[in-house]
């Protein structure tokens, strides 16, 4: 999320401009291409989990904060959405720990 802060510095409007939307789209595409590229680099294999989860989180954040306007919208919307997200993630991690699936 912090990587995208500069996008919104010059605008105080409710929603980002079309130009910013396109910029976010380009960033999302570039990340996806990089992910697929990394996938074929055997040397990075031990770092795959960290790289892919990190890249996925960045893409997730760009879509949520810019396309879904969470950055500019009421904080309660973020609370409900990220509340659900954190709860779901915690439950999944707890279940994997309990059932020894890591």
């Amino acid at each position: 999320m912090s990587t995208g802060e500069h996008l919104d510095n010059h605008h105080d409007s409710d929603h980002p401009t079309a130009k910013q939307y396109v910029l976010v789209g380009i960033i999302l595409t570039v990340i996806t291409i990089l992910e697929v590229g990394v996938y074929y680099v055997e040397a990075l294999r031990s770092l795959f989990a960290a790289i892919f989860l990190g890249a996925g989180a960045i893409k997730f954040a760009f879509v949520a904060f810019y396309y879904m306007h969470l950055k500019m919208d009421h904080y309660l919307f973020s609370a409900f959405f990220f509340g659900g997200l954190v709860l779901a993630t915690s439950i999944a991690i707890a279940l994997m720990a309990i059932l020894g699936a890591f």
């Binding site: 919208d73 009421h74 919307f77 409900f80 959405f81 509340g83 659900g84 709860l87 439950i91 999944a92």
Partner: peptide, 29 residues
């Protein structure tokens, strides 16, 4: 001061996180 329907949609999406979260958890397990 927020739109009611937008609020409803966000509550629903928060709930849907748990729906997909449980499916993804099953897959991972």
């Amino acid at each position: 001061g927020v739109d009611m329907r937008k609020f409803l949609m966000w509550v629903f999406l928060g709930s849907d996180c748990l729906f997909f979260g449980a499916f993804i958890a099953t897959y991972l397990l």
